[in-house]
Design a protein around this nucleic acid. Structure first.
Lengths: 193, 193
DNA sequence: GTCTATACAAGGATAGAC
DNA sequence: GTCTATCCTTGTATAGAC
């Protein structure tokens, strides 16, 4: 019972990290098995649908992790502007890259897997879509609680989602968290009522 | 001479499209050869460094195409706000998706290949970085010409880059150009002096 | 410049013993 | 639940004839 969950858990954990670091197509099942240290034979036992199922659950888990982070950061500050800025700065700080490996995997974009799968795998596309929508919901809730109108809140949240996703990609590409710092500075303009 | 360039050209064209639609790792050399209709034996003749070289040139070409579009759109309008809005709307309109295939390949993000390669292939990462920087330069130039300060222009341009990249990814994932439309509406706030 | 054939590795997936 | 062995496909890349 516990051992079942242990090796399933190890596989899923490693898969989540690798998929989001390197992407869906660049990550092999053999690599996941090797790095997780889990018994090789058990992969298809725990994940009968193979790679697709593994990726699907990885996206779900990754999304939940990030959503929890967002939620925490937004609840620590009453002011939505300060809350969002704190959240982005947290990402920027985690973002330091050491020898090509980002210090923390949750500073990576969901957009990599989203863009990889959007046109070719409906199941995974839907998972990514759900994740993005969850983020948006949290932003909206925070804004509405501070008396932004429903439509204004939706618009800001959609933009914020795009902004963070894009800035993470840029930071990754430039090997610098400058783009993330830049959007923090611009955020006050976006949140005007 | 012309025939040399013809088949080289066909390969590069197809590679550019496939790499940016499906990503670096999901695109096979066999697929490129098949779809381009180019003679199979000629790939390694024209691109001795194989897939990496092909991708490198594809990124360059794709970046140049998009940069030309941005330049055109920004020159058709004196007001930077209107110019940028027109540019994004153009992307949004091209974006219609028919049976999972986007109507126009240049509505796709560079970010896919950027995020795929940033951590694992320095040569391609640098190409992507150069492309993003070229975009930023164009934005900055337009803003400075309208009396924005240097630093303000840089900040807005960096943000705009992230915004568009993120919105395209979101639109792709949601199969809707709503995110792109959203950022058009928010743009006036960003361009305040 | 182009073509065919082929080498060689890695990918995902399955079968069957334990 | 786990392990090993194996299958099939696909991937990149090369050699050598034309």
């Amino acid at each position: 019972m516990t051992s079942k969950n242990q090796s399933r858990e190890r596989i899923l954990q490693t898969a989540t990290r690798l998929f989001h670091m390197n992407g869906y197509h660049a990550t092999g099942l053999n690599q996941i098995i090797k790095e997780s240290g889990a018994p090789k034979g058990s992969l298809y036992y725990h994940f009968p649908d193979g790679k697709e199922q593994l990726a699907s659950e990885a996206i779900e888990r990754f999304g939940a992790m990030v959503a929890a982070n967002i939620l925490e950061d937004t609840q620590n500050e009453v002011d939505p502007l300060k809350a969002f800025q704190a959240h982005i700065l947290k990402i920027a700080n985690k973002f330091a890259v050491v020898e090509n490996i980002p210090l923390c995997a949750d500073s990576l974009p969901i957009g990599l897997m989203a863009a990889e799968t959007a046109l070719v795998n409906e199941r995974l596309r839907l998972k990514c879509e759900a994740v993005f929508e969850r983020f948006e919901e949290i932003y909206i809730e925070k804004l509405v609680a501070s008396d932004y109108s429903k439509e204004q809140a939706r618009l800001i949240s959609s933009t914020l989602n795009a902004l963070i996703e894009g800035a993470v990609t840029l930071s990754l590409t430039k090997k610098s968290n400058q783009p993330l710092q830049d959007i923090v500075k611009m955020l006050p303009l976006l949140l005007q009522k």
